[in-house]
């Protein structure tokens, strides 16, 4: 019971603090947008793609997308490892 009260208090304090921080953030007019303005202005000439988001995902930040594809591949490997076919008589360890 004490634990629940403590966690609730922590969450309430967090809620108040985050609300206070959120009230100061600007909405509708980003503070700094030099990089994005460069992308919007020159992305079409440099990559030839009309979709600026695609040109960022696959060209300007291509390494990021490579890591993302690797993460997806690794997750599929992990799922396959968990549901693999057990051999005859094989069990989970420590059963």
């Amino acid at each position: 019971m004490m634990k629940i009260a403590l966690y609730s208090a922590i969450l309430l304090v967090l809620f108040g603090g985050l609300m206070y921080l959120a009230a100061d953030l600007p909405f509708g007019a980003p503070l700094q947008s030099d990089m994005d303005d460069y992308f919007i202005k020159n992305g079409q000439e440099q990559t030839g793609a009309n979709n600026i988001v695609t040109s960022i995902v696959f060209d300007f930040r291509g390494f990021d997308t490579l890591g993302e594809a690797t993460v997806l591949f690794t997750a599929v490997l992990g799922v396959g490892m968990m549901f693999r076919k057990m051999k005859e008589g094989e069990e989970y360890e420590n059963d």
């Binding site: 990559t47 009309n50 695609t54 696959f58």
Partner: peptide, 9 residues
């Protein structure tokens, strides 16, 4: 258009 991007897509 866009060269390598459709291949990567």
């Amino acid at each position: 258009t866009a060269g390598l991007l459709p291949l990567l897509n």
